[in-house]
């Protein structure tokens, strides 16, 4: 049995209603499990980009990609496993840290990770951070002892590195 890998699938789709539902339904019907899925506009207003992260073995991945390609509104589907890519995720994180010294420590953690405080109240603060998935996970782990009240992660967006930059 081929091993399970985490795959990032980037899909350019026609910017039409129903495409997200089609993809979501396709994953559900065939029992594929999505870790994250983001959709957003691209430089071409007629196209959207979906970035799908999923854990799959090679056979499952082959079916996922083929089934996606079968959708007529799916313009391009790529698996980024063996492609040099830039991957980013964003997190918004609200930290309790009401007490003076603990608040300073928590703010210092945000600083070290190059995060930005976007909201501050006497009871808590909210930080924003972008980075690789590992970096996001690290700041979440570091801030947890101070009391995370709320957290929102964007899921991953990804692009290939410029071909000229690679070769």
């Amino acid at each position: 049995m081929s091993g399970t890998n985490r795959h990032i699938i980037s899909a350019l789709v026609e910017n039409e209603h129903g495409v997200l539902a089609k993809v979501a339904g396709l994953f559900a019907a065939r029992g594929f499990n999505i870790e994250s899925l983001t959709v957003g506009p691209t430089e071409d207003t007629t196209l959207s980009r979906m970035t799908i992260v999923l854990l799959a073995d090679d056979d499952t991945l082959e079916q996922v990609v083929k089934q996606l390609r079968r959708v007529p509104t799916m313009v391009k589907v790529q698996d980024y496993l063996d492609t040099p890519t830039i991957q980013r995720e964003m997190v918004l994180i609200r930290v309790q840290a009401g007490d003076g010294s603990r608040r300073l420590e928590a703010l210092e953690v945000v600083n070290v990770f190059n995060g930005k405080v976007v909201d501050l109240t006497p009871k808590d603060f909210t930080a924003e951070l972008t980075g690789s998935e590992n970096k996001i996970q690290a700041i979440v782990d570091c801030l947890r002892p101070y009391g995370i009240k709320e957290l929102a992660r964007s899921g991953k967006v990804a692009m290939t590195r410029s071909p000229t930059a690679v070769r």
Binding site: G18, V71, P72
Partner: peptide, 14 residues
């Protein structure tokens, strides 16, 4: 009906 038939059509349009 477009929702209902999404998994059983090659494509559908509203």
């Amino acid at each position: 009906i477009t929702g209902i038939t999404r998994p059983i059509t090659k494509h559908n349009y509203l």
